[in-house]
Simulated assay, not measured.
Amino acid sequence: MNQEQLLKEVNEIFKDVLDNEDVVINFDTVASDVDDWDSLNHIQLIAAIEKAFRIKFTSTEIYQFKNVGEMISSINSKLNP
């Protein structure tokens, strides 16, 4: 799965968790760009992504994500070690 495909799947998770079909994310998206992406929803997003891809992020990884692109890169590296 390439990064564009991962982005599409993660975007669907964002729509579901945030209960907003209009959410569109890209590699440069940060929390302040998305309505309702607060600290509680961030935890729910991480949990949903981990479940969907059957992966686990470390707390350090989560803390270091600067944007969606870094999250996608981390997912990709876990799926394709």
Results as ranks from 00 to 15, higher is better:
residue 24 V to G: 08
residue 24 V to P: 11
residue 24 V to A: 14
residue 24 V to T: 15
residue 24 V to M: 13
residue 24 V to Q: 14
residue 25 I to F: 07
residue 26 N to E: 14
residue 26 N to K: 11
residue 26 N to F: 02
residue 27 F to G: 11
residue 27 F to M: 15
residue 27 F to N: 14
residue 28 D to W: 08
residue 29 T to D: 07
residue 29 T to M: 12
residue 30 V to C: 13
residue 31 A to P: 15
residue 31 A to E: 12
residue 32 S to C: 11
residue 32 S to D: 15
residue 33 D to W: 03
residue 33 D to P: 05
residue 33 D to C: 03
residue 33 D to K: 07
residue 34 V to H: 11
residue 35 D to I: 06
residue 35 D to F: 06
residue 35 D to N: 14
residue 36 D to G: 09
residue 36 D to V: 09
residue 36 D to N: 15
residue 37 W to H: 05
residue 38 D to F: 02
residue 38 D to M: 02
residue 39 S to E: 00
residue 39 S to Q: 00
residue 39 S to V: 00
residue 39 S to W: 00
residue 40 L to Y: 10
residue 40 L to A: 03
residue 40 L to Q: 04
residue 40 L to T: 10
residue 41 N to F: 01
residue 43 I to W: 00
residue 43 I to F: 00
residue 43 I to L: 11
residue 43 I to H: 00
residue 44 Q to A: 13
residue 44 Q to W: 05
residue 44 Q to T: 01
residue 45 L to R: 07
residue 45 L to I: 07
residue 45 L to C: 03
residue 45 L to P: 01
residue 45 L to V: 03
residue 45 L to S: 04
residue 46 I to G: 08
residue 47 A to C: 09
residue 47 A to N: 12
residue 47 A to Q: 13
residue 48 A to H: 07
residue 48 A to D: 10
residue 48 A to P: 09
residue 48 A to I: 07
residue 49 I to F: 05
residue 50 E to P: 08
residue 50 E to V: 03
residue 50 E to H: 08
residue 51 K to V: 10
residue 51 K to Y: 04
residue 51 K to D: 14
residue 51 K to I: 06
residue 52 A to P: 10
residue 53 F to Y: 07
residue 53 F to M: 06
residue 54 R to L: 14
residue 54 R to Y: 12
residue 54 R to P: 10
residue 56 K to Y: 04
residue 56 K to Q: 14
residue 57 F to L: 03
residue 58 T to Y: 11
residue 58 T to Q: 08
residue 59 S to A: 14
residue 59 S to C: 12
residue 60 T to A: 13
residue 60 T to R: 13
residue 60 T to L: 12
residue 62 I to D: 09
residue 62 I to Q: 08
residue 62 I to L: 03
residue 62 I to G: 06
residue 62 I to C: 05
residue 63 Y to Q: 13
residue 64 Q to A: 13
residue 65 F to Y: 09
residue 67 N to K: 09
residue 67 N to D: 13
residue 67 N to Y: 06
residue 68 V to W: 01
residue 68 V to F: 02
residue 69 G to V: 05
residue 69 G to F: 01
residue 69 G to E: 05
residue 69 G to H: 02
